[in-house]
């Protein structure tokens, strides 16, 4: 082989890297700011007509009025209660039944087809039924939100239980741990990552159903507020309502992220 000189030496081309999304602080916020500024500029310059999109600053003013008149909390209070109660019922039932499906062949054989059958039903279509069953008051709204949260939670939970490392379960058995210990100390913590990412989806669905339920029959609530604004073509108020929903979504997602950081700090 010929002697290699520096003349015919060249860098090995780098072809690794990528596929590793990291955290970039502030970028998400910047996207929002840019979009809002664009809308503001468009509506002010007449590029976007007032009928197409309300001016962001007007929406902000409406929001301020809403806050100052105290109506914000009059709408937000019942909404948050409905969301909390409904999602709590739905998620706890979903996690409980999901764990059962994950652990018992009989529960799996009996319930998986049932869950598959009720999953695709648009839950909002069942609201009249819930009104008959639970009355026109809060109970029917709780039931609707709970039902909508339940199905995705069940599916996420039993998939997560299936993914718990069997070696850990055998380990528990080999040390003579009781059934309940194995479930509560090995299966449920091991399924936690899957359960939490399932909760992200089901809580978002809960917000959608909350609005739907409130649109169909509620005096107060963000859904009712948006419906009123919509039927008057009051776009500023409509958008103020929509912004509240978005903020609610962001808040729920941050809460889940916070819980994930706390509960799943053991993850590699």
């Amino acid at each position: 082989m010929a002697e290699m000189t520096d003349a015919n030496a060249r860098e090995v081309t780098f072809r690794g890297g990528g596929f590793q999304p990291g955290t970039r602080r502030g970028v998400g916020l910047a996207v929002f700011v840019v979009l809002i500024l664009l809308a503001e500029w468009g509506t002010r310059s007449g590029f976007i007509s007032a009928l197409t999109l309300p001016r962001p600053s007007d929406v902000l003013l409406t929001f301020q009025e809403l806050y100052q008149s105290g109506m914000l909390f009059k709408h937000l209070g019942p909404s948050l209660t409905r969301l909390a109660v409904g999602a709590l019922i739905g998620a706890s039932l979903g996690i409980g039944i999901g764990v059962l499906i994950g652990l018992f062949s009989l529960a799996r054989a009996g319930l998986v087809p049932l869950v598959a059958a009720i999953f695709p039903i648009p839950k909002i279509a069942l609201l009249p039924l819930f009104v008959i069953w639970f009355g026109i008051d809060e109970a029917s709204k709780y039931a609707l939100i709970a039902f909508g949260t339940f199905t995705p939670t069940v599916v996420a939970t039993y998939a997560a239980v299936d993914n718990v490392d069997r070696v850990l379960i055998r380990m528990g058995q080999s040390f003579g741990l009781g059934w309940w210990s194995i479930v509560s100390k090995i299966v449920v913590p091991g399924a936690m990552p899957g359960i939490l990412s399932g909760l992200r989806i089901s809580l978002t669905i809960a917000i959608i159903l909350l609005v739907a339920a409130e649109m169909l029959g509620a005096e107060y609530g963000i859904g009712a507020y948006i419906l009123q604004a919509g039927s008057l073509y009051d776009l500023e108020r409509l958008f103020a309502g929509v912004v509240i929903l978005s903020l609610l979504g962001v808040a729920v997602s941050s809460v889940v992220a916070f819980v994930e950081r706390r509960v799943l700090n053991w993850r590699v």
Binding site: D165, V167, L168, R170, M171, G172, F175, G176, L177, G178, S181, K185, I186, P189, G190, M192, L264, W266, R267, V268
Partner: peptide
């Protein structure tokens, strides 16, 4: 076990404690 079978969500102490709790 060959692959240790430690609970990743428990500390060293917690992993030892697990088998004493019952």
């Amino acid at each position: 076990f060959q692959d240790f079978a430690l609970l990743p969500w428990r500390t060293v102490r917690g992993n030892v404690a697990l088998v004493l709790e019952d």
